[in-house]
Amino acid sequence: MSAITLTAELSQLADLIAFVRQAAQSAGFVPDRIREIELATEEALVNIFQYAYPDVMGKVRIDCRMVNDSRLAVAIADYGIPFNSLDFPDPDVGAGLEDRHTGGLGVFLMKKLTDDRQYRREGNQNILTLVFDKPGSGKDRIGDTAQSEPFDRSESWP
């Protein structure tokens, strides 16, 4: 298990993403899947920067750990106001050009690229955990969470 804590702002995005990339690399994910892991993490972080800390600057902490050697759990904790991006309504991805809006698109991508995801409020923290299955570990990659082993929701980070 490894963790990083940085200021929750765009200037720290590259370092936060690099940390998650390294964890995914050490866990043996293939490069294409690592880009998806980076993307899901970026979308989660950008929303936290904007909505958990609308007025004040705060910290964000990321913990990466392997679960049963087959799933990477990326837990993102912040100390801002209660905020759960999973509550965002999905965008209309079938809308034509003129009616197309991009609100909620990042969270939609995040949901599609994770095998499981969970939000909880714990004390003064928002904790969003993104879970990525390792291909070849007997689980399907995208969207097929029904067949996945349930992610242990009682376990706490950090």
Binding site: R35, L39, E42, V46, T102, G106
Partner: peptide, 8 residues
């Protein structure tokens, strides 16, 4: 790599 910010 492109994220939703790029799509926007």
């Amino acid at each position: 790599y492109i994220s939703s910010a790029g799509l926007r």
